[in-house]
Simulated assay, not measured.
Amino acid sequence: MKEQIVAGIGEILWDVFGADEQLGGAPVNFCYHANSLGCRAVAISTVADDRRGQSALDVLAKQGMSTEHITVVRQGVTGYVVAEIDDDGVASYRFPDNVAWDHLTLKPATMALAETVDAVCFGSLCQRSVHSRNVILSFLGGVRPETLKVFDVNLRQHFYSREILQNSLCLANVVKLNSDELLILGDMENIRGTDTYKLTRLVARYDLQLAVLTRGAHGSLLVSPSELSAHPGVAADTADTIGAGDAFTAATVIGLLQGNSLEEINEHANKVAAAVCSGKGAMVALPPDLKVKGG
């Protein structure tokens, strides 16, 4: 089987929990889990020339991830976010402005990489900066027509707009969102009704291959133009939920690339997300039996 190459482009940041700091950022988490599951995954982001920036590169290398497409800039500071965990293990975040990923830069080799990836995941947060938004759009413009373009909606604070969300949906052929994000997007798109109806309308309106809704402990819903799969979720002894959605996205993308049915994809992705919830932080080691066969 041909080696599958996926990329995540956007923010890299440190989740700061008091005195504890853990590396994260949705695109990087996505790549970590795609790599763990059996793909060649490439994180594309920017850090600053500071302590956190060097530590980020060190952590990625220690996790067996390539840092070839992580650039270093002098302006700003390496991204970080102040995170708080509630009694259910759910995280909330406060993001500072003008950090390194707001100045996203790509090497020529990274633009060349665009022509080789089988899938690329991008979100809305890194697009808060006009500069970084244009860089992401440039990379997306360089991928092959058959490349999966996955829009992980990932709404944070006020860092999104109708224009960003609609343009991203137009560029994507897969969208992933959670229940809160579906409410916001449904209102923005003037779509009322059940979750299934909202996803069905989004798929039709934006000519999507797949819409993915994660519902936390209540499982997930996958909707394509011709198929639907609802899953009740997998029980987990939850430490926290950080990175679970990104792991779900990674498992879904790999399943799509392998041509699996929605039922197969949904079952596997829920098991992967539950495994991540059982550990602390986003970069949890996955059980070997969850690795994709032939990956």
Rank of each mutant, 00 (worst) to 15 (best):
V77C: 02
Y80M: 07
L104W: 02
D87S: 14
A91I: 09
T116Q: 15
F122H: 12
G123P: 09
V77A: 13
S124G: 09
D87W: 02
R74S: 13
V81C: 07
D102S: 09
V120G: 05
V77R: 14
A100W: 00
L113Y: 08
D86S: 05
V77K: 14
E115T: 14
A91D: 05
G123Y: 13
D97H: 08
F95S: 03
V120M: 09
Y93K: 08
V81F: 06
F95M: 11
M111F: 12
V72L: 01
S92Y: 04
A91Y: 07
G76V: 04
Y80A: 02
T67I: 15
V72Q: 03
I70N: 04
V73N: 04
E115I: 01
W101V: 02
C121S: 15
T67P: 01
G89N: 10
A114G: 09
N98H: 14
N98Q: 13
G89F: 07
D87A: 15
S92I: 04
Y93C: 07
D97A: 14
T71V: 05
H103C: 03
G123K: 13
M111W: 11
A119L: 08
W101Q: 02
V90Q: 15
A109Q: 14
A112I: 03
Y93T: 08
T105A: 12
V117Q: 10
L125C: 09
R94A: 14
R74G: 05
T110P: 01
V73E: 03
A100D: 00
S124N: 09
Y80W: 13
Y93I: 07
E115L: 07
E68I: 02
R94N: 11
H69I: 03
G123L: 12
D86R: 09
V81Q: 04
G76R: 02
L106T: 01
A83K: 06
T116N: 12
C121N: 15
V99H: 06
H103W: 05
Y80E: 06
F122S: 11
S92D: 10
S66Y: 11
R94E: 11
F95K: 01
S92Q: 08
W101T: 02
L104Q: 02
T116F: 10
C126T: 15
L113M: 12
D87R: 14
D118K: 12
Q75V: 08
G76Y: 03
R74K: 15
G89H: 08
A83F: 04
D88I: 00
E84L: 10
L106P: 00
V82W: 05
D87N: 11
T116H: 14
S66V: 08
G123C: 13
T67Y: 07
G76P: 01
F122A: 11
C126A: 15
S66M: 08
V117P: 02
V120S: 07
D86E: 08
F95R: 01
E68V: 10
T67G: 06
W101K: 06
L125E: 09
T67H: 07
L113E: 06
S66P: 02
A83D: 05
A114V: 07
